[in-house]
Design a protein around this nucleic acid. Structure first.
Lengths: 206, 206
DNA sequence: AATCCTAACTTAACAATGTTAAGTAACGGA
DNA sequence: TCCGTTACTTAACATTGTTAAGTTAGGATT
């Protein structure tokens, strides 16, 4: 079955070329520059050709988002080696913030935009692809070591609260950094203070 | 100067009619339903008439946003009466979350959408119009009573960290509540846990 | 080998959007 | 009475996502 496989391969190739073009536009010029026509220009196809490979623009963006989630999770690989879960949590927080500030377009698409599609291809629960799973391992490690305050027993709840707090910092920075209404403290200071608040607020003293 | 004033008044009236129509569309059908043509339909004017009263769509939305910020801040009036700043903080957090969950469209526009315009008409620093100022008063009260941990001395930094954490909760709920990737705990539980984390994380024990 | 069919496109078009250009009607001041 | 400004309207433009209707090339079928 030679020709059939070649066709399949070629189809996959143009698919990734579309995704790459979209990703590049997206990262360089922001989400509003990602139009079907501009993607098409870049790969020297007509705009309609894209529809043969993706149901619609949203499906294309969803697939981009999936890739981003995976590479985002990969970014935590080195941190997974840190033995002390408190230090690991601190490092993960720092990495999370760095990602958001360095990739605001991606962060917005990933975490600040309501999704209408539900299907994704992330290996749920695998910490190498699923950053939430990575965080949960930290939380469970902390819990097993008895580091949490006694009233905190739900590891999912704890993980979600931790994530939310860091997300709040990053997303507010992305959405409101231009706003002069508030005298913003440097984002690095806010990040550190948030980390310490999380640790002091959830863990036992000392 | 009779006619001139009447003109002025009529002008103001149609202006608010435009804003009201936009607000209604916005609250009922989401931000993507707010088009110049639909607003125009509602007030039985042509779409171009709106441009005589607002520079462009963004200016219109910015003005809506201003109104929302003001009424948002007004929502804290009753809470201002609570004498104990810790209880006031708790109540403010609850009110903040309620507002976000009950008005997700407004919340998105106010806090989750990067602004390109800078001018607004909020009385900065007045806690009746400026919710950040309201929060800051709580923080300053706490600080004057010596309730904060010793390493926390910057009231703006503290206010921003508190706000971020609550915002993270609300915004994640709005953007990702449909996402089945995470086994979300009930948002009310997350809200309470976040509040407690803030209080335990920033204040002295007991 | 001739035919057909389907996969992979292209061109043209549609409807919806924000926005602008050009025209018009009314009304107050000179 | 005339003029000009104010407050609009109609028509149009450019840009978007998306679809309809071809077209072409190459493997499969008879």
């Amino acid at each position: 079955m030679g020709p059939k496989e070649r066709r399949e391969r070629e189809r996959e190739e143009i698919r990734t070329r579309i995704l790459d073009a979209a990703r590049e536009l997206f990262a360089n010029e922001g989400v509003e520059s990602v139009t079907m026509r501009r993607i098409a220009d870049r790969i020297e196809y007509s705009p309609t050709a894209i529809y043969f490979h993706f149901r619609d623009k949203e499906a294309l963006l969803a697939e981009l988002c999936d890739c981003d989630f995976r590479s985002f999770a990969h970014g935590f690989a080195a941190i997974a080696q840190i033995p002390d879960p408190v230090e690991r949590l601190r490092a993960a927080g720092e990495a999370y913030v760095s990602f958001g500030l360095n990739n605001p377009s991606h962060y917005r698409l990933m975490f600040m935009t309501p999704k209408t599609t539900e299907a994704n291809t992330i290996a749920k629960g695998n910490p190498e692809e699923d950053a939430y799973a990575f965080l949960k391992i930290i939380v469970v490690d902390l819990m097993e070591q008895g580091r949490f305050r006694d009233d905190i027993t739900d590891s999912d709840l704890a993980a979600q609260v931790i994530w939310s707090a860091m997300h709040g910092m990053v997303s507010l920075e992305i959405a409101k950094c231009k706003d002069e209404w508030v005298e913003w403290r440097p984002v690095a200071d806010r990040a550190r203070a948030t980390s310490e608040m999380i640790i002091n607020g959830l863990l036992k003293e000392k």
